[in-house]
Design a protein around this nucleic acid. Sequence first.
DNA 1: TTACACATGTAAGGCGTTACATGATTCT
DNA 2: AGAATCATGTAACGCCTTACATGTGTAA
Lengths: 195, 195
Amino acid sequence: MSLRYALLALLSVEPMTGYDLQKEFQSSVGHVWHAPDSQIYPELRRMEKDGLLEGEDVIWGQKGTKRLYHVTPGGKKALRTWANTTMEYTRTRDPAHLKAAYLELAEPAAARDQMREHVRHHTEQLEQWQDKLRELQSGTSAMLNRRLAATPEADRRRTTEFKIFAYEGLIARAQTEIEWAQRGMSLIDALDKPS
Amino acid sequence: MSLRYALLALLSVEPMTGYDLQKEFQSSVGHVWHAPDSQIYPELRRMEKDGLLEGEDVIWGQKGTKRLYHVTPGGKKALRTWANTTMEYTRTRDPAHLKAAYLELAEPAAARDQMREHVRHHTEQLEQWQDKLRELQSGTSAMLNRRLAATPEADRRRTTEFKIFAYEGLIARAQTEIEWAQRGMSLIDALDKPS
DNA sequence: TTACACATGTAAGGCGTTACATGATTCT
DNA sequence: AGAATCATGTAACGCCTTACATGTGTAA
């Protein structure tokens, strides 16, 4: 259900096509929520059917058309309701920690690879998020600037601060994961050669 | 696909029924991976069809029977392969951080509620995991003890240490989430009354 | 004219959730 | 006799992934 609200949030800044949205899901929002095009296009249709969006066919070149979606009042309301509602947390389901709990079944070399991969993955994420955070802080985030331009002055500070806050959380989590996996590598070494 | 390996890992200690497994998924493994009975029973059937398990009908009471599953050599091999294989990481999909990024759309009171709920949820998890960790460390974990009894002496230390390691990771993550949400509450307060 | 970006989907299948269903056994 | 526990599923639906599929526009 979150996909729907991520789309609404993006479209509440300005009308976009499915393609535009898909690109945002590869960069900006994509850092928090990923979705492929094959999920986005049908969801936009459903949202239109549910009255949250209105699609408008726009001429594109000579023969082409593209469908620009904009948020309806119903969509704005749904977005506000979502923002004001506490979500329920789903039960834990964590492949990385499940595997870690059974690392004794792996060869030490394979165990090390897994921890190295965990570090690599989260380092990559961390760097993306840190870049994004710097953009937000320096006012060079294109998406945020467009959003701020459409936001009443009194809410601009909040808007920026909460985006920064979200990324700080992701960064803190990535750092925690990296430290954990590094401890894991030490542990594997210690158990492998207990000398 | 992880459900399959979680089931294999549990069954590699001793044969169990679907019901037994389901209970483990509510307590021990359930702290890392959750699954409802409606998912477990069909998965056991599929695993049997795939040659990873063998089910045996056991008489139970006068009229009843129950199905005890035990791991086949093929199942053991599949478990070892899984343990030795680096998993691919799926793209981020994080409802809590997505909502945090748009917290300016919520009333301050609702935003506070959400952060409070985030703290509550992760505190609850944290406590569960800390309990479990203490059990592991004090040697009072029934599941671990059964596993150790079926483990060659040379691997017992590793087995225990990796379980501890997995829970330490979950604990560290929960703590990070709690600190983040607490910073969130301060931020909401600061933005609400900028004095 | 060729490559890259723009544009929009369908189809099959897997995993997971929630709700619905049923019956035997054992303990008090 | 009743309650709690043991035991095993089915059905419908939603979300997500992967692979397949097609066509236009624009700039080098």
